[in-house]
Structure formats: structure tokens, C-alpha cells
Design a binder for these strands. Structure first.
Lengths: 159, 159
DNA sequence: CCTCTGAGTGTTATGATATAACATGACGCG
DNA sequence: CGCGTCATGTTATATCATAACACTCAGAGG
């Protein structure tokens, strides 16, 4: 599992592949990938950055696909709920999942300089947290793991 | 380092001790623990739960210590900035630090049933995340580690 | 003693994020 | 058709957060 976001890659095929994966999963699970939902995941896939719900809404509005907040929030809720996108709590913003369809414990690396966000493997960290919770009798159901710092590009640029 | 929040304990002395620790640290570092700031940390210490900024503000208002949002946000910013309190990103809310004065990588265990929040040791998890970041050339500066689930009390109650 | 400065606070206004509630429309199924 | 379900459209409002500027007061330095 690679990180994406910080690496060069063929972004067009990256988008296409992710979209195909989402379509496939929806097909398998009988989920409706409606025009709004499809467009929202496309919008998120355009960038390896987190976008606010209102940023997404602006795009939808320009395209006549909906103009009120609930339209964007509902599509995002669907995408997040089915693992096609993630919410970055620290930023109150959303990002396309880098590995849709695969089960994974996501950790996010947020660059404070360029705002790019990468999804990193976090199984060991997740296990550690689950364990720490269990020690206290706490049953972990969901996790938010977000790290803020400098990405490889920006480590050189800024101090 | 114990967890607090899920355990029985003498809450009055728990508050007093934490407050003393905050006072001590402020003294050492030349920080001003003004009436508003002191009252806000006291308010947070009353409960091992996260409180919204406006919840804190309501209390301040009742006591004539300030009535506008910036008053609460500024005090909270001070407390968080100096490690006397933490922000729970998942809840957009704040909680008193359970171990003020000590360096620690905090992980929070949020009970979805009773809203209590405990601070758990997270050094192994933090190390794992730092490591995962480093593998990708990412330099981690700050971390948000929050787990949502059921606390010991609520595991029995709800299914 | 004065006044300059900086930190903290008070206040107004506004920005940013998110959801409740209800109406409408499309579609499958008995 | 008549009904239920799911998605969308729309209005209104709730919730979270900060910009900007005025005021106060304590301490430093003349």
C-alpha cells in the first residue's frame, strides 16, 4: 500500500482507477452511485488535498447539480459512510479515499505548508490504540489518526 | 499513568491537584493564569467530558466573567497552547488535560454512549505513526489520536 | 510622576461549518 | 394504481470560530 499524495504519479489514471473501484463496489453492494455522489467523489479525487463541504458545493453549484449545503453534506455522508472518502477532523474537510474497496486503518499526514494530505498505513498504530483502550475496558469502534507536519516537498522549502 | 475518566476516584482532590499543577507550571514559566483562564480550566476540570466552547461560555456568562465567544476561545487557546487542556477534534470540544505538566502523547477514548472522554497512554501508537510518516519523508509535528467506542460502564448497558 | 508598551479583556460583527424539517420526485413492487 | 423507499430540493436555523478594534491596567524606563 503506497501513500499517494506525496509521490509523482499518473493522476489521470489514478482518478480513473479509483472511480472504477468505487463503481465496482457500489455495483457489488447495491449502492446507488447517483450523479451527485459520483460527481462529488470525482471532485475529491481531483486533488490529494482535503476540501471543505462548501468548496465541493461551489463546484456543484457551478454545474447546476445542487446549490444548498445539504446536497453536498448528504453526498459526502454517503461517501464517507461507505469508505469512499474520509473526513479529516482536524480540518473539517473531506478527501477521497486512496484505497477504496480495501479494508484499512487510515492515518492521515497533513502538510501544514501545502495542505496536501496523504493516507499512510496505520495498522500498527491502530493496533496499539485498540490495545491501550482494551487495557481500560474501552471498546474501540472507530479511530481518528491524523498527523500534522511537513511533507517531503515542504521539508526542503520551509525550515 | 492512569486513565481517569473511566475509574472511580476522588474527584475533588483530582481537580485540586490538577489546578495546583497548572498554577505551578504557570509560575515556573511566567504565564499569567488570569481569573478567566483559571475559571475556564476549573470548569473543564469539573467533568471528564469534553465541553464545547459555548458551553464554557454559558458558565462564564452566568458568573459575569465574560459573555462573548472570543472570551472563551481565547482562554481555551491559552490552555490548549500550554498543554493544560486539549481539543477533541472529533467533537469540536475541549477537555482538561489529565496530566498537566508532564510530556505525553495523548490519545483520547470517547464513549459514544455517555460522552465521557478518557486520556490514554499512546506512546507506542505515536511512535508507530511517526515511523509511518518518516517512511514517506513526512515530518510529524503534532498528532490527533482519538478513538470512539464504548467505555467500560456503557459496554454493559448498551449492547 | 509620566507615558509608552504589551498583554489581556470587552464588544461588535461576521465568517465557516453543519443539520433539522419538510416538500418533491423517481422507481420498484404487490 | 397505491404504497413504500430512497434520493434530492429547499428553507431555515443551529453550531462553531475568528477578525477587528476599543479599553484597561501593570510594569519598564525616562
Amino acid at each position: 500500500m503506497s501513500a499517494l499524495g506525496f509521490e509523482r504519479h499518473d493522476h489521470q489514471s489514478c482518478i480513473a482507477e479509483a472511480l472504477r473501484s468505487v463503481e465496482e463496489t457500489c455495483g457489488e453492494q447495491g449502492l446507488q452511485l447517483t450523479p451527485v455522489r459520483r460527481r462529488v467523489i470525482e471532485i475529491l479525487l481531483q486533488e490529494h488535498r482535503a476540501m471543505g463541504a462548501y468548496d465541493v458545493l461551489d463546484v456543484l453549484r457551478d454545474e447546476g447539480l445542487g446549490s444548498q449545503p445539504p446536497v453536498a453534506y448528504r453526498a459526502l455522508e454517503f461517501l464517507v459512510g461507505h469508505g469512499f472518502a474520509h473526513k479529516i477532523e482536524r480540518l473539517n474537510a473531506f478527501i477521497a479515499c486512496a484505497h477504496p474497496g480495501t479494508r484499512h486503518a487510515p492515518a492521515f499526514l497533513i502538510c501544514r505548508a501545502c495542505n496536501s494530505v496523504a493516507e499512510a498505513p496505520a495498522r500498527p498504530a491502530a493496533r496499539a490504540i485498540r490495545h491501550a483502550g482494551a487495557e481500560l475496558g474501552f471498546k474501540v469502534e472507530r479511530m481518528v489518526i491524523e498527523a500534522e507536519g511537513l511533507c517531503p516537498r515542504c521539508t526542503g522549502d520551509a525550515a
